[in-house]
Computed example of a mutant assay.
Amino acid sequence: MNKELLHTKLVREIIALIASGTFSDGARLPAERQLCRQYNLSRGTVRQAFNDLEKLGVVKIRAGSGAYVQKISQKKLPTHLLPQNFENVSFSDIIYARKAIETAAITLACEKITDTHIQQLESLIKKMEQSKENLLNFFKYDMEFHQVILHASSNMPLITAFASIAEYHKYSQVFSSMHEEEVDFAIGYHKKMLTALKDRDIKNAAKAINKHLEHTEQAINNSDDEVISA
């Protein structure tokens, strides 16, 4: 992958985090050095991404201080960097699709999951627990958990479909205004999924993923401010 594609990918990732509420208006983005380590990018690539974000009006770079999120609404974010037809996709649409995809995937995973997959899921839950104060990392490990389950299903159409849904999910409001108790709820549901997968318990695995997603949707519907990671 060339340098241009790498910095464009980082621009999209940062816009997703702003759109989701992970970085609120006026928030300082992580330092260049931190982003270099986290995304395994060169300093020049990260700097180019910051410059592009400033040109787009997404951030304001302050010399010697860093890059700060501008006071813009999600609707004003550059549409050419958002998923296709994003403005026509509701959170309920995303949850409905995820239920269909992930219920099928976790059912297959109960039959095909390996010890390596189990170890990966256990490791990701530990990382989620250690990242309660760092939502950027928490969301990363959260989605990786679901991706492991998809790969454990060994069903390429489901894996591809989930990748598309995950892209929309990053830009949804589900990640904004998360509180510690909601993070704990999310971790609890992931532990239930892991237990069911270890037991090869299809019924409880499907129940856990559906309850998890239903709880997330209910939280969104109950309050614009109360949201839970999925």
Rank of each mutant, 00 (worst) to 15 (best):
S123L: 15
L135C: 05
S123A: 14
S164D: 14
E111C: 04
I118H: 10
E122A: 03
V148N: 09
M156A: 14
S123G: 10
I118V: 15
K140W: 09
S131C: 01
F138R: 03
L136I: 02
I149W: 01
D115L: 08
K140N: 13
L158I: 11
M156G: 00
T116D: 13
Y141S: 01
H146Y: 03
K126I: 13
M143L: 15
S153E: 04
H117V: 08
H169T: 06
K140L: 14
D142R: 05
Y168N: 05
H169M: 08
S154I: 09
D115P: 01
D142Q: 07
Q120M: 14
Y168R: 02
A152N: 08
I118C: 03
A161V: 05
E111I: 10
N155V: 10
A152S: 12
E133Q: 03
K132A: 02
S131K: 07
L158K: 11
I125L: 04
Q119K: 15
T107H: 03
Q120A: 15
D142F: 04
Q147V: 11
I125K: 07
D142A: 01
M128K: 07
T107W: 01
D115S: 04
T114M: 01
I149F: 06
A109K: 00
D142C: 01
L135I: 03
I113Y: 11
F162K: 05
N137V: 01
A163V: 02
L150F: 10
I113M: 08
H146L: 09
F145G: 06
A163G: 04
H151P: 00
S123T: 15
A152I: 07
K127C: 02
S131L: 05
I118A: 05
F162A: 01
N137G: 05
A161D: 04
A163D: 11
E133V: 01
M128S: 08
T160C: 09
S154Q: 12
H117L: 05
L121W: 11
Q130P: 00
P157E: 12
K170A: 02
E122T: 14
A152R: 12
P157H: 07
M156N: 14
Y168I: 00
Q147D: 08
Q130M: 00
S131W: 01
E129R: 06
L150I: 11
S153A: 10
M128W: 03
S164G: 13
A166D: 09
E122K: 14
I165S: 09
A161H: 09
V148T: 12
Q119H: 14
E133L: 05
T114Q: 06
A109M: 09
E122S: 10
E129H: 07
K127R: 14
F145Y: 12
H146R: 11
S153N: 08
F138T: 04
I149Y: 08
S154Y: 12
